[in-house]
Structures are given as structure tokens and as C-alpha cells.
Write a protein that binds this DNA or RNA. Structure first.
Lengths: 184, 184
DNA sequence: GTGCACATGTAATGTGTTACATGATTAT
DNA sequence: ATAATCATGTAACACATTACATGTGCAC
């Protein structure tokens, strides 16, 4: 596992937007669309310590002397910013599309402000291509299956998965158009 | 964690469809729409041992005597079937819809053959109600945000999440209609 | 008789979850 | 002063992943 976990990347991305404390991050996870990350201290504080020990984030508050239970704000270091950008710029693989759609969406969400617009467009192009192939294969497989056997909940669930991919595909195409319009 | 993991439930559901070996299950995870479960032996064999030790599955092959590296098939026990059905029948909560959509889809997929059609319909009704409320709230929040600030990738990703929910909502409504038609 | 698919397992590691614990600050 | 909220942390546990290890049976 040379790569950091997606929780760590979510933390890097958020801290990159503005320096924050562990408590701030927990609040974000508890109250926004990033709800599916746990807001429990047992996940976030250890993750912050790991990022700190790897030199990707550093404390920035003018924390007098006695630091016992005071607010500790973190900001990205140069290395942290580099690590974030490297993650955002990673080549997108078929496996990413098949297994890690959520992570791809997180990457996309953090692109503004961290990578040039052209990188975002290229990401969407790759995304559209890979997801198009995969969704097409699944759709064909579903048509075959549903012709051969009566409709049951297993098949319906399979269809739901495919419809989800098709929605994401349509969204990506529209997003690409919208972003390309204001490229300059 | 009173509940078994979702991997364990996936295994119970598959074994409930027909007795299978660990290797069969790995193949299923490696080649079907259930790809996002790891097909690594390090996850599946220990999970099978756990289910066996809890008495939810049992070996069924006429395994002569020397059992060294032979194929070992498992089937659901009575307790296993009971555990599977209890999971399928669990009341659906708001949190399930917000955080565990994948698990809900898995539950739905396994309903045929394990619970009566009326239970499946009730599940969809609850799903539609809870997801409708949640997706509506998110949509309103998105409209507010996108009116207040310029469109950026974070907002676009947020919108994608909402569109996914709306797709699932529409699918659930159609599935409910289709299943209710052939209730008798 | 060598290679490949079948088939099952263990050990090391990382990390997320839950539950518990505690100090600091602010409002009443 | 006392309750609520802010804020950080630890310990026990379960689990997934990766890499490694090993045996079986068949085809060529």
C-alpha cells in the first residue's frame, strides 16, 4: 500500500483548502456531503498524526507553550501539497472506474485550486472513456441475462448499478462541456 | 459491532443460493458485478471460518477422510438462513440511506427466494421515502450553494452525488411498480 | 515431467470503529 | 458553579490487504 488511504487524501484536500484543526475536520465530516467518512476522533486524530509524521502537514497555530488540550491547526507543507497534486494527477485506470468511483469523485472535487483546468478536462476525458467501455459491457451482460431468465431482485439490483454508471457518464460529459467553455 | 460485516452477508447470501466452496466464491467476486469485494484468499477463507465457527454455515461435501487440500463446499445451516433473513428484514433507517446505499442494494438483490414479495415491496417503500427526503434536502442545499458561488469542481461533484440518488430513487419507484404487478 | 489451473491457508501490517477518558472554554 | 460545547486523545478489537506458502489434479 504505497498509497495513502482515501481518508488521508480527504484530509489533505480539506486542509489544502484552508488550515484546520482535527475538530474542524470532524465537523465537516459530520455535517456535509462527506458524511460517509466517520467523524469519530479515533479515525481522524491518528490519521492527522500519520500525515504529520510523514511531513505532509504541520501545525501552524501560535500555540504559546503549554499545548495540552488546545486547538491545533494544521496546514499543508510543500510536500503535502505535492502529494495531493500527485494524487490528483494520477493516471486513471480501468480498475479505478470499476472499483473506486467514490475516490475518483473525491479527486475531481479537489481539482479546482490545485491543478490547472486542462488537467481536470483530461481527467474527465479519461473517465468518460473508461466508464463508457465498462458501463457498455455491463449493459450488454445485463440485456443477455434478462433475456434468459425472469426478472428478479438480483437482476434489478444489477440494473440499478448500471443505471448509476450511466448517470455518472452523462454527468461527466455535461461537466466536461461546462468546464471547457470557460477554459481561458 | 453486533452486525456481521457486509462481506459476511454477501457470503451468506451467495451460499444461500447454492452450496459453494471458498474458491467458487472468489471466482464470483472476481468475475461478476460483485467485483468490489476482494477475491483475495486472505479475506474470504477467514470470513468463512468465522461464519462456520458461529454455526451459520457448515461443510456439506462427502469429503472422504484425508481432507488436505480438497474442495470444501459450504451450505447454510438453519441458523445461517435465519441470520440472512433477519438481515434482509431489518428496518431501514435514515442512516442506511445516507451511509450504506451499497449494503441496501445487496440486501435487495438477495431478497428473492428468501423473503416474501410483500417484504420486498415494503423495503422499496421505505427506501423511496427515506431517500426521497434525503435527496430533496441535498438538492435544496446544492441549489443554494450554486446560487451563492461560482461553479467549481467541488460543487459539480456534489451535484453528481445528488444525481446518483435521484437515479436510484427513480429506479426504486419503477422496480416497485414492476414487482407489485406480479404480486400474486 | 513440467506447467497451469484448482484450492486452501497463514503472517504481517495498517487502519477504521467503538468506547472510554479528559482537559479547556463559554454561557447561564 | 455547573452544564454544554469545544477539543484531543488512547485502548481493544475486528477486519481487509498483501505477500507468502503449499498441496492437488490434469493436460501436453
Amino acid at each position: 500500500m504505497a498509497n495513502a488511504s482515501t481518508l488521508e487524501m480527504a484530509l489533505l484536500g480539506l486542509i489544502g483548502q484552508k488550515p484546520q484543526s482535527g475538530y474542524d475536520l470532524r465537523k465537516t465530516f459530520a455535517t456535509t456531503a462527506m458524511r460517509h467518512y466517520s467523524d469519530s476522533p479515533g479515525s481522524i486524530y491518528p490519521a492527522l498524526r500519520r500525515l504529520e509524521s510523514r511531513g505532509l502537514i504541520a501545525q501552524v497555530n501560535a500555540n504559546g507553550g503549554a499545548d495540552s488540550r488546545k486547538r491545533q491547526e494544521f496546514a499543508l507543507t510543500g510536500a503535502g501539497k505535492g502529494s495531493l497534486v500527485a494524487w490528483l494527477e494520477r493516471e486513471l485506470t480501468r480498475d479505478d472506474v470499476m472499483l473506486r468511483l467514490g475516490e475518483l469523485l473525491l479527486r475531481f472535487a479537489f481539482m479546482d485550486g490545485n491543478v490547472p483546468r486542462s488537467t481536470t478536462i483530461r481527467f474527465l476525458d479519461q473517465f468518460i472513456r473508461e466508464l463508457g467501455v465498462y458501463a457498455g459491457e455491463r449493459r450488454a451482460q445485463f440485456e443477455q441475462s434478462s433475456a434468459r431468465m425472469p426478472l428478479h431482485t438480483g437482476l434489478l439490483a444489477f440494473e440499478m448499478g448500471i443505471k448509476g454508471m450511466e448517470t455518472q457518464l452523462a454527468w461527466a460529459q455535461e461537466a466536461r462541456t461546462r468546464l471547457a467553455e470557460k477554459l481561458p
